[in-house]
Amino acid sequence: MLSAYLIHIAIIIVIYAILAVSLNVAVGYTGLLNLGHIAFFGIGAYASAILTKNDVPYTLALCASGIMASLFGWLLAKITAKLKGDYLALATLGFGFVVYAVMLNWTKLTRGPLGIPGIQKPNIFGWQITGAGSYLIFASVIALFIVLIIYRIVHSRYGKLLEAVRDDAIGAQALGKNIYHLKVQSMMISAFFAGIAGSLYAHYISYIDPSTFFLSDIIIIFTIVIVGGLASLRGSIIAAIIIIALPELLRFIDIPSSMIGPMRQMIYAVILILILMFRPRGIFGRIDLD
C-alpha cells in the first residue's frame, strides 16, 4: 500500500543515489574532491528543460543533458588539473558558484530567477509517462543502468588505473600512465551521470529555478558519499536511502514548520561530523579520504 508520498520520496532517493554514485567516481575512485558537483546536476536539468521546451524529443534531450554536463566536467578538470587537496576542493566550489551565477543572470537562456515552469513528462518513442508511479519505474530503470555501467567501469582495469591516480599518482606516472587524461575522463564520466540525474529531476518536479542548484545542496550529496563510504557504490545507494528518508520522519512529528528546515540541515551536519570522527570510512568504504 504505497502512498503517493512514498513514491515521491522514492524518486528523490533514486535521483540522489545517481548523484552520489557519480560523485563517488570522481571523489572515491579518482581522489578528485569535487565540491561543485551540483553544477553538473543543474546543467543537465537546464539543458533537458530548455531542449524539451523547444520541442526536442525527450530521448535526445536526456542524452544532451549528460553530454552538456560532461563538457563542463571536462572544463572543470582542465581548470583544476594542477591543484590538489583543499585548493582543488575550493576551486571546484568556486566553479559551482560561478555556474549558479550564470544560471541566475543569463536570463535570455535560463529565464533567470523566473525559472522554467511546465516541463513536460517524458515521451519515449511514443510512450508517454504520466503520473509519479510510472516515473518512479522509469527513473529506477535508468538508475539501474547507470549503476551497472559505473560498476563495470570501476571494476575493470580502467577502474584500477583511476584508483592508482587517487593512491599513488607519482607511481602511476612512473609507469607511463597519463594522469591528466585519467582525471579529465573521470570528471567527465562523473559529470555525465550527474547531468542525467538533473534531467530526471527537472522532468519530475516540472519546475526548476537557479535556487534548486545552489551550493548548499552539495553537502547532502557529499554526506551521502562519505557516509556510504568512498569507492563503494553499494554504500552510496544505501546511504542515499538513509540520508534522504530519515529527515522525512521529521515531518510526522509535530514541530513547527519554521524548525523543520534548520533541523534537517543540522541532522545532516551531525551525521557527517560523527561519521568523520568515528568511522571515516563510512559504512562500506574501503579507503580513507587520503
Binding site: G85, D86, P280, D290
Partner: peptide
Amino acid sequence: TSSVILLIASIGIMIFCDNL
C-alpha cells in the same frame, strides 16, 4: 587525517552552527 577531511568537518560545523 588529511586536511581535506578537516575541511569537510569544518563545513559540517558551519552548517550546524548557522542552522542552530
